[in-house]
């Protein structure tokens, strides 16, 4: 694949703050290298805006290597753009055609209010984790890692669930703005390990209660979350959480 330059037209959601209404601005951008990442393309746009004395587009980013879960952006109707299992920072301009119009919006969900432009407040996820996404460990020396036997299958499944970077693409993709895939991944990664057992029932009830309190929608099993997840978190986690939740609700004191 050889490098070439393309021209694109960006339609970007601009919103001053969480109170203001916001709307689309159109920016033509010429000579964009197809080797640029999507965020690098936005860097170029922002430099141009700054030189013109305009307000640059605010967007979230951090590691830019697809593991931190900071970048977001709803690109042409899909979270993290058209590629599968890819975050926006790992999406490259070679995935777009010359002359294409690219619509970029923030994640849209009531629990994810827009802070500015494409940046949304995802602290609802942090509050769900605080509600139960942890294990309680006594202080002192850590136990030898190999002292607790764990079935390989469970370790693998737990690890796959733990691959969730909490970016919120699942909520963004879901027609109901449901956070079930995120919460179920965070429930599953601990429910599958021996260390997660003591608080297993309480954890799932508390995290689901917090999820509902935040105002996320209900799951209707469309599967969009898993299909759009940059870490390909499996839908089976949602079923596991439903199982755990039903069992916990029925047996909790």
């Amino acid at each position: 694949m050889s490098e070439q330059n393309i021209n694109v037209t960006l339609k970007v959601w601009r919103q001053r703050n969480s109170q203001s209404k916001g709307g689309f601005e159109t920016y033509p951008l010429n000579d964009v290298s197809t080797d640029m990442s999507f965020l690098e393309m936005f860097d170029v746009l922002n430099e141009k805006l700054i030189q013109e004395g305009k307000d640059p587009v605010a967007f979230d980013h951090d590691c830019r290597e697809g593991i931190c879960g900071m970048c977001s952006m709803f690109i042409n109707g899909r979270p993290h753009g058209p590629k599968q299992a890819v975050t926006t920072c790992q999406l490259h301009m070679r995935s777009f055609k010359n002359g294409e119009t690219i619509v970029v919006e923030p994640w849209r969900a009531k629990p994810f209010p827009v802070i500015k432009d494409l940046v949304v407040d995802r602290s609802a996820f942090d509050r769900i984790i605080s509600a139960g996404g942890f294990i309680s460990v006594n202080t002192g020396n850590a136990q030898d890692a190999n002292a607790i036997p764990i079935a390989k299958d469970n370790a693998d499944e737990s690890f796959a669930a733990a691959a969730c970077i909490g970016c919120g693409a699942c909520v963004a993709a879901c027609k109901n703005a449901s956070a079930m895939l995120f919460v179920s991944a965070k429930v599953s990664q601990l429910a599958l390990l021996p260390q997660g057992q003591p608080e297993r029932k309480q954890r799932v009830m508390d995290m689901v209660a917090q999820m509902d309190n935040e105002g996320f929608g209900a799951c209707t099993n469309t599967g969009a979350c898993s299909a759009e997840c940059p870490k390909e978190i499996s839908l089976t986690n949602i079923a596991r959480m439903n199982r755990d939740f039903l069992a916990a609700e029925m047996t909790a004191k």
Binding site: G77, R78, R108
Partner: peptide, 11 residues
């Protein structure tokens, strides 16, 4: 969303 490509990820 102004643009929502639902068919890309669900039936």
């Amino acid at each position: 969303y102004a643009v929502y490509d639902g068919k890309a990820s669900s039936t």
